[in-house]
Design a protein around this nucleic acid. Structure first.
Length: 98
DNA sequence: CTAATGACCATTA
DNA sequence: ATAATGGCCATTA
């Protein structure tokens, strides 16, 4: 396990149910605001059930990618009460500063 | 070692 | 509103 992944997972692990954060927010939280893509790469390889990587979305409001498919990601979010229209999530759900 | 890749982002047209 | 562009960084080939 790489140090970078550890930091990313530790942050995402703390995102509660029904709450969502952006990739950029995670990047800032680990004090590497530029490493946005790298965060996505790290989450792509995540296996742990303890880290809810489906609650991480893009800054433009779209849900973004998911290892098991975007459709599945949307399902999981809906299951938590997050409203999604098409590929976008409703603004009130988005929190850029967790 | 270098080069390519990607669950991104902000800017520009 | 959409599309293209350049940049960023960790990982992988």
């Amino acid at each position: 396990m790489i140090e970078f992944q550890k930091k990313v997972y530790n942050v995402v692990k703390c995102v509660p149910r029904g709450r969502i954060v952006t990739y950029g927010a995670v990047a800032r939280a680990i004090n590497k605001p530029q490493a946005v893509r790298a965060v996505g790469n790290a989450l792509n390889k995540n296996l742990f059930k303890s880290v809810p990587c489906h609650r991480v979305i893009r800054s433009d409001g779209r849900v973004g990618g998911f290892a098991r498919g975007t459709k599945e990601k949307i399902k999981l979010l809906r299951r938590e009460g997050v409203k999604i229209s098409g590929e976008k999530v409703e603004p009130p759900s988005i929190l850029k500063n967790p």
